[in-house]
Design a protein around this nucleic acid. Structure first.
Length: 481
RNA sequence: GGUCCCAUCGUCUAGCCUGGCCUAGGACGGAGCCCUCUCAAGGCUUAAACACGGGUUCGAAUCCCGUUGGGACCA
């Protein structure tokens, strides 16, 4: 058994696309499962705007989702001589020929053919001309087979047959000396010893064009697999209109890479009813047989759900680690330095089940840093009213009488006071919540106190009481009962 | 236009290869109820699909043909 070698060959378009990540993922999973080699190759031949920055974007994206490669990144623009020499080799061996038809001629003949209802293929005019050294502008064409069938045993689609009559003699080297896509791909896949070419569905019809080139070049034929496309909600190709398509945009939106991978792998692949997979499980269970043949619609809501799952059930250290840079970026650098990892983990543990993204988590976690609270005006206006100020004062006094924080004891004290005042639990809970967090929504009150600690709980309670005593600064009359 | 691919709830999918276990299962999202100091989470319940038409067969989501509808590629 020879070693499995697969590749991911994106073109640098400025960022790494979600569809690309899925293609990379399937290749990567197969490579890791088979203990093979995963090659990264940048297909930048006709990308005049291909820059180091867009290659970096691909590398960064791959790093973020944790898809590591064993060889590369190779750049096609650095391999031009390879393509040229292989093209000339085909010329020498009579498998390619110079075509001196000008683009204008080709265009007019194409239109003519179309008008007659024929397929607009190259008519092979220069095929038997045997042009020696070309006088000026000329392209090199491959002599495609003219009879029989080309059968692709696709890993995913099964057997697909093409009639060679649909193939024309395609250009392999343009008159400007640049190789065409179909040629450079074959040279690379052949030279790199790729055993399984797995790529997007959109290349399926390129395959019968490429197979004869593999053969002419004397390369062993790899296996082929064509993955169905990822579509947007309107069933058209996924694009910016459907939301973010760059993988890094999801990092910025607070998604965990493991959630991203889990979502993407289920888009076109399944293992029974299982929804959640660890990376190791994926490597073990992945199989081409279970890859879907039909396209899939990208569903941001399910991705969001998965992200929430990973946030609330994932390893806490891992979640904290992913959150920290976002916290630092939100202006909490100093606070982050002065708090302990244990305390931060407790805080994250407290809020994680109410946040679906890390960005949401940053918002949820905000009130627990620093001494003072920032009241949300609406919340303060509604719940910190003069009427509750005395009760808040009593509560603070009772807590203060307790020597140290105890969740249970404080809760008892709280409930006792509620009872004595003839209130409902919620009537006091909300003002206290606003006093402690500045907001109307938070984790359980006593958990909040625990994370805040005795001193901050007390001082925030007093501050809330003051604010309540001041009453609403606006002239509006409170209308709530 | 030619060639090729595809078709199960709104979406991701199981089942299809190797017909009967399918009055079609799971998940997201939706609806309702429960829990509840708020917000979540959680629990329970529920609506929702085999594109259509022919065949083959005792029996078809599953096999065959066609139609329709999507998509890709070549220009």
């Amino acid at each position: 058994m020879s070693e499995v070698r697969v590749r991911f060959a994106p073109s640098p378009t400025g960022f790494l696309h979600i569809g690309g990540v899925r293609t990379a993922l399937f290749n990567w999973l197969f490579a890791r499962q088979q203990r093979g080699v995963f090659v990264l190759r940048i297909e930048d031949t006709d990308q005049s705007r291909s820059t180091d920055a867009s290659i970096q974007a691909i590398v960064d994206g791959m790093h973020w989702v944790g898809l590591d490669w064993d060889e590369g990144p190779f750049r096609q623009t650095e391999r031009m001589e390879l393509y040229r020499s292989r093209a000339f080799e085909l010329l020498e061996r009579g498998k390619a020929y110079w075509c001196i038809c000008t683009p204008e001629e080709l265009e007019s003949r194409r239109k003519e053919a179309e008008a007659k209802g024929l397929s607009p293929r190259y008519d092979g005019r220069c095929r038997n001309l045997a042009v020696g050294s070309p006088p000026g502008e000329a392209a090199l064409r491959f002599k495609a087979p003219q009879e029989g069938q080309i059968v692709v045993e696709d890993l995913i689609k099964g057997r697909v047959a093409f009639d060679t009559s649909v193939l024309d003699d395609l250009i392999i080297l343009r008159s400007n000396g640049y190789p065409t896509y179909n040629f450079s791909v074959v040279v690379d896949d052949g030279l790199m010893g790729i055993t399984h070419v797995v790529r997007g569905d959109d290349h399926l019809t390129n395959t019968p064009r490429q197979i004869p080139i593999f053969e002419a070049l004397g390369f062993p034929l790899p296996h082929f697999g064509h993955l169905p496309m990822i579509l947007g909600s309107d069933k058209t190709r996924l694009s910016k209109r459907h939301g973010a398509t760059s993988i890094m945009a999801y990092k910025e939106m607070g998604y965990l890479p493991e959630a991203m991978i889990n979502y993407l792998v289920r888009l076109g692949w399944s293992h029974g009813d299982q929804e959640i997979f660890s990376r190791q499980e994926l490597i073990e269970k992945f199989s081409w047989k279970n890859v879907q043949t039909s396209p899939a619609v990208f569903n941001p809501e399910k991705l969001l759900w998965l992200n929430a799952e990973y946030i609330k059930t994932g390893d806490i250290g891992r979640v904290v680690e992913a959150l920290e840079p976002l916290l630092a970026a939100s202006g909490l650098k100093a606070e982050l330095r002065s708090c302990s990892r244990e305390w931060l983990a407790r805080l994250v543990l407290m809020v994680r089940e109410r946040t679906k993204t890390l960005v949401e988590m940053v918002h949820w976690v905000g009130p627990y840093f620093g001494e003072a609270v920032t009241f949300e005006e609406e919340a303060a206006k509604k719940f910190l009213t003069p009427a509750v100020a005395p009760v808040l004062a009593k509560l603070a006094a009772r807590f203060e009488a307790l020597p140290s924080f105890s969740k249970q004891r404080w809760e008892e004290a709280f409930k006792k006071l509620v009872e004595e005042e003839g209130m409902k639990l919620g009537q006091l809970a909300q003002p206290v919540r606003v006093a402690l967090t500045g907001r109307t929504a938070s984790p359980g009150l006593f958990e909040v106190m625990e994370v805040l600690g005795r001193e901050r709980t007390l001082s925030r309670l007093r501050r809330g009481m003051e604010r309540a005593a001041e009453g609403s600064p606006s002239p509006e009359k409170p209308s709530q009962s």
